[in-house]
Computed example of a mutant assay.
Amino acid sequence: MQEGGRTPAPGLRIGLVCPYALDVPGGVQNQVLGLAAFLRRAGHDVHVLAPGGLPDDAYGLEADRFTSAGAAMGVRYNGSVAPVAFGPLAAARTRRWVAAHAVDLLHVHEPLAPSASLLALGASRGPVVATFHTATPRSRALRLAGSALSGAVDRIDAGIAVSPTAREVVVGHLGRDAVVVPNGLDVTAYEPSDARLPADGRTDGPPRLLFLGRSGERRKGLDVLLAALPALRRTHPDLEVLVAGPGPRDLPPGCRSLGLVDEAEKRALLRTADVYVAPHTARESFGIVVLEAMASGVPVVASDLAPFAELLGGAHDPAGRLFRRGDPEALAAAVSAALLEGRGPRTRRARALAHRYDWSVVGPEVLAVYDDVLGRPALVAPVGEEVS
């Protein structure tokens, strides 16, 4: 529709590449699927390449818009075991996908991970945007990769970092800049509502703490939380601790391991917890689960990592409680204070802050990067305005 002499820019054909298997839960995977859903709502033709298969909860992505780069295998990367695909078969599948789709723009995530993103970057001959999620400021491996893969890095037309912490890694290791565009979230899917409580309708009972993450990774900080329990049980003897996420782990009495949970189960757990605890100790570039907890209206207790403090509105007056990372006594004190305070002005402020990260805000920021690369007029209007 043309009005006032202006015509909306036509939709783009966009290729999104995730280095990690989409059918294995993870923050990068959720970002790729969430971005694909936003871009399609905005009228763009989106195709996704990733290892593994398409999960049941794929944010509405149809099977014919997904291509597998091959079976995923676990490789240690950025302090965890990443489900990636590499080697001759993955390279051949990636080359065929790039050639067959002839996209206007390729958007790869974690381009230096040994997987589909790096392979797609090497096969691409058109405009490329890359999103960097990693926060490893002293990574010798990343410095070496940046040097060895300088040719691949040079193919990137624009870089996105999900936080200032991630941007520092890009600048320090790759010698190039990146614009900070945070991760996105469908905030409305997490907003608390009595009508959306799980079937147990939990409104009382013993205080419930929730930990979400890979329990076997030390940097996720479950050991810090468990070390704080004796002090917490002195004041809250009936305290219940729920641990959700992959990884076998022996837990003390009063703690329950839920194993891997899907997105719907995660949202239900967040809505019915009394406190969400993020005791992570290192290498967190953003903190998507902290953001999900904020949107859910649950009181948040988090370690004082810079990305967590930023999400909560700053270390001076956070919309949650920050404690010194790795300190069980400080964690126990913060949880006790959060349990005493409960839901109120602090959690309402956290929910308000979460709206800054809704896809309706973050999505247009990603599209603005595409505009700059392609030299196009704005593809969508600023939030609150209509495209004419």
Rank of each mutant, 00 (worst) to 15 (best):
Pro307Arg: 01
Asn183Gly: 09
Val46Gln: 00
Ala338Gln: 03
Ala91Lys: 12
Asn78Met: 03
Val369Asn: 09
Arg65Cys: 09
Thr188Ile: 12
Thr347Asp: 07
Val24Asn: 01
Val373Glu: 11
Val275Gly: 07
Ala295Leu: 06
Asp204Arg: 02
Arg218Lys: 13
Cys18Ser: 15
Gly27Phe: 01
Thr136Gly: 04
Ala338Thr: 00
Ala352Pro: 04
Ala72Gly: 10
Arg138Ile: 08
Gly5His: 13
Val129Asn: 06
Phe323Met: 02
Leu106Met: 15
Gly213Asn: 05
Ala37Ser: 12
Arg219Gly: 07
Val32Met: 04
Val361Phe: 02
Arg346Pro: 01
Cys255Met: 01
Ala37Asp: 11
Pro246Asp: 08
Leu185Glu: 07
Val84Asp: 00
Arg167Ser: 12
Leu239Met: 15
Val289Asp: 02
Val224Glu: 07
His107Thr: 00
Gln29Tyr: 05
Ala166Ser: 13
Ala92Leu: 02
His109Glu: 11
Val335Asp: 10
Ala141His: 10
Ala293Thr: 02
Thr347Leu: 12
Val129Ile: 04
Gly27Leu: 05
Ala91Thr: 11
Ser150Cys: 10
Gly60Ser: 00
Ala334Met: 06
Ala9His: 14
Pro51Ile: 10
Gly87Gln: 09
His316Thr: 03
Ala189Glu: 15
Tyr357Leu: 11
Pro137Met: 10
Ala227Gln: 11
Leu291Trp: 12
Ala268Phe: 05
Ala82Asp: 07
Gln2Ala: 06
His101Thr: 13
Gly87Pro: 09
Ala161Trp: 04
Ala92Asn: 01
Ser360Val: 13
His109Gln: 14
Gly342Pro: 13
Val128Asp: 12
Trp359His: 10
Gly159Gln: 01
Asp64Pro: 07
Leu119Asp: 02
Ile14Tyr: 10
Asp57His: 05
Glu284Pro: 09
Ile160Cys: 03
Val380Cys: 14
Glu62Ile: 07
Arg348Trp: 07
Gln31Met: 03
Arg65Gln: 11
Asp274Val: 00
Ala58Asp: 03
Asp223Tyr: 03
Gly15Met: 14
Cys18Asp: 08
His173Gly: 03
Pro364Gly: 14
Leu144Gly: 05
Asp204Gln: 04
His133Glu: 05
Ala37Ile: 00
Val290Pro: 04
Ala273His: 12
Leu185Phe: 08
Gly245Ser: 11
Gly205Ser: 09
Pro25Thr: 01
Glu240Phe: 06
Asp274Pro: 00
Asn30Pro: 05
Asp177Phe: 14
Arg202Phe: 09
Tyr59Gly: 02
Ala158Gln: 13
Ala268Glu: 08
Leu339Ser: 04
Ser257Phe: 00
Gly53Thr: 08
Gly314Asp: 02
Pro137Ile: 06
Arg143Gln: 12
Ala72Glu: 15
Leu251Cys: 08
Ser193Arg: 09
Met73Cys: 14
Asp304Gln: 14
Thr203Leu: 09
Ala42Ser: 15
Asp177Ser: 15
Pro377Thr: 05
Pro182His: 13
Tyr370Phe: 15
Ala333Asp: 14
His101Asp: 10
Gly245Cys: 13
Ala352Gln: 13
Ser115Phe: 01
Asp57Trp: 05
Ala161Cys: 11
Val369Thr: 15
Arg349His: 11
Asp154Lys: 13
Asp250Trp: 02
Gly70Asp: 14
Ala273Glu: 07
Arg13Leu: 13
Thr272Ser: 09
Thr131Tyr: 07
Pro206Met: 08
Asp56Arg: 02
His107Ala: 03
Pro307His: 06
Val243Asn: 01
